[in-house]
Simulated scan of single mutants.
Amino acid sequence: MPSSWTTVDKDTVTGLPIMLAQNIIAGTVLSVGAIACSGFYLSMIGNVASLVPWALMVVLVAVAFTYIVGFALLWCVESFTLRMREKFRPIAYGVVGALGYGVWGMLVMSSLMNSLDQPLNGVVLSNGDIAALTVNYAVFGFIAYMLAQAYGRGFASRRGLAVGLLVVQIVLAALGIVVGAMMFSALAS
Rank of each mutant, 00 (worst) to 15 (best):
M1R: 12
T6I: 15
T7L: 15
T7P: 00
V8T: 15
D9K: 12
K10W: 06
D11Q: 12
D11I: 04
T12W: 09
L16M: 14
L16T: 15
P17S: 12
I18T: 14
M19H: 10
M19I: 15
L20F: 12
A21N: 09
A21M: 05
Q22H: 09
Q22R: 15
N23T: 13
I24S: 06
I25Y: 09
A26M: 06
V29S: 14
L30C: 13
S31W: 01
A36L: 15
C37V: 13
C37D: 08
G39A: 09
Y41P: 09
G46Y: 07
G46V: 11
A49L: 14
S50Y: 06
S50W: 00
L51P: 02
L51G: 02
V52N: 00
V52W: 07
A55F: 01
L56H: 01
L56P: 00
V61L: 05
V61G: 06
A62S: 13
F65S: 06
G70Y: 02
F71S: 10
A72W: 14
W75N: 09
S79N: 10
S79H: 03
S79K: 12
L82I: 07
L82H: 07
L82N: 11
M84N: 06
R85N: 11
R85M: 10
K87N: 13
K87E: 13
P90I: 12
A92D: 10
V96G: 03
V96K: 00
G100M: 01
W104A: 02
G105R: 04
M106A: 15
M109F: 05
S110K: 02
S110G: 03
L112H: 08
D117K: 12
D117E: 15
P119Y: 10
L120K: 13
V123Y: 11
N127F: 08
A132N: 15
A132Q: 13
V135I: 10
Y137N: 14
Y137V: 00
V139K: 11
F140K: 04
G141T: 06
F142S: 08
F142D: 06
I143N: 07
A144H: 05
A148Y: 02
A148F: 06
G154Y: 04
R158N: 10
R158I: 08
R159P: 00
R159A: 03
G160R: 09
V163Q: 09
G164N: 05
L165N: 01
V168N: 05
V168K: 02
Q169D: 06
L172C: 10
A173C: 10
A174V: 12
A174E: 01
L175S: 04
L175I: 05
V178T: 10
V179F: 04
M182P: 00
M183G: 03
F184P: 04
S185C: 02
S185H: 11
S185E: 14
S185P: 04
L187E: 12
S189I: 01
